[in-house]
Amino acid sequence: MKILVLAKQVPDTATQVKISSNPRAIETAGVTWIVSPYDEFALEEALRIKEKRQGTEVVAVSLGPDRVKETIRSCLAMGADRAIHLNDPAWADADTLTTARALAAVIKQEAPDLVLTGRQAIDDDMGAVTAQVAEILGWPCASWIMEEAIADDGKTVRAGRQVEGGLEIFDLPLPAVLSAQKGLNEPRYPTLKGIMGAKKKEIRDVKAGDLGLAAEPPQLSLLTLEALPPRPPGRVIPGEVKEAVRELVKALREEAKVV
């Protein structure tokens, strides 16, 4: 069985994101980059399938500039067998559809049995690529999955996806696309040997031309980024508890209009 894991490089959750002098981009200097946590769940799940099913190959796929190599190496250190790096200036302004087209083209080349990815990347939180990839490929798709089980014959997968208050269980014929929700698993750490061995694994660089994709302007163009307005300071209501509570309730009702 072959599994492709789509992983995106994103700023570390602890990073204080600042808008750069170009108002359409964030300041990347000093940013620590990580694998988007939901994509890590996807990779972990792929590795668990590999442990259960002999002969399974896990391939990590990531799109982005040179710095993405580091993310790819993290995936290889965790246990992916090899990786594909979609790296082309033509994708610098890629919107989700352009990204999905590039990924779908690679998926077609590789012809995996399963594509796993995170439910969304934690940078721009679009959450669109999974469904777009499945749509382009014409493959079934289940998003936000909390559990999965591939049938012994490798022909179908049973996926439980999170819905309000419970799980929705689907059977999907393979090949299919699944996106991971938090709770699917607890990702492993790369081991020291994994980290040191990552260098020896293959990373295939792919350009837009290699996929036969013509350059196309993104359908979605980013106009500007705006920082959130600074949070107004809190207000302390002094005095006796009874009166203070009365005043608080009044403020919540009349000023904040939340009760």
Binding site: K69, E70, R73, S74, A77, Y189, P190, T191, L192, I195, M196, A198, K199
Partner: peptide
């Protein structure tokens, strides 16, 4: 690259 990944791996733990 390996040394940076090694530091990141330890920091993760």
């Amino acid at each position: 690259d390996e040394q940076r990944a090694l530091k990141a791996g330890v920091a993760d733990i």
